[in-house]
């Protein structure tokens, strides 16, 4: 069973339908028991970092994520759901994240923002997540990003004005800055790859 963490952020329906193509048992919930039991937990996220963090905390999502990390249980963060796994973000005000990945989320250096649309992701070598889709395009919508590759992790990068992390895989935690649920067939393959590895 895959749980999609419902903390009032992100396009839950799209995420639900896209993951349902890969697994028949999808639950959209913030029930701690279900979220902790699930084979995989998807953490979506749309909007401003600080707003997402406070909504996450208000439903106890921070505790759920930390407990899954402690128990080495798979997590998939999407967009701001990826960013909140980092130490902090400088979007609007400096806001602390969960600090599961070290590094800061900062504004992309580009004249035109948001970074909106389809961009190529250069998959890290030996990436399981990008198996069969090593140089595809995925759909991004964001103005802030984590730029420093995480040591000891598989970092897949993209470029818009500068390089930044499009996706990171470290042990049982994966996260994408892009929206696999909105990235057509390449996104569907990526989700399938993740589900198959659970």
């Amino acid at each position: 069973m895959i749980a999609i963490l419902d903390y009032g952020s992100g396009n839950l329906r799209s995420a639900e339908r896209a993951f349902a193509l890969a697994d028949s048992r999808i639950v959209v919930t913030n029930d701690p028991k279900l979220c902790l039991e699930a084979d995989g937990l998807v953490v979506p996220g749309v909007g401003a970092f600080a707003a997402c963090m406070s909504q996450l905390i208000s439903v106890g999502g921070d505790e759920i994520i930390r407990e899954r990390v402690e128990n080495s249980k798979p997590i998939f963060g999407i967009c701001v759901g990826m960013q909140i796994l980092f130490d902090s973000s400088s979007e609007k005000t400096q806001t602390s994240g969960l600090g599961i990945f070290s590094g800061e989320v900062t504004q992309i250096k580009s004249q035109i923002l948001p970074h909106m649309g389809w961009n190529t992701v250069k998959a890290a070598e030996n990436s399981q997540l990008f198996d069969g889709i090593e140089s595809e395009t995925f759909y991004f919508v964001h103005s802030y990003a984590a730029k420093k590759p995480i040591p000891g992790a598989l970092n897949s990068l993209t470029n818009y004005g500068e390089d930044f992390i499009a996706s990171v895989e470290r042990d049982f935690i994966v996260a994408t800055q892009f929206h696999p649920e909105k990235s057509g067939s390449a996104g569907a393959t990526l989700i399938k790859n993740w589900v198959a590895a659970l």
């Binding site: 396009n11 329906r13 919508v141 909105k182 067939s185």
Partner: peptide, 30 residues
């Protein structure tokens, strides 16, 4: 549409309030 088509969908026309936006986003608009 959002249940079947996995590319971004924009919806416009007659949107007057935050609640209109909320309804459309919840329905699956991006």
């Amino acid at each position: 549409t959002a249940e079947e088509v996995f590319i971004p969908l924009t919806v416009g026309g007659g949107i007057r309030s935050v609640e209109d936006v909320n309804e459309l986003l919840r329905a699956g608009a991006d």
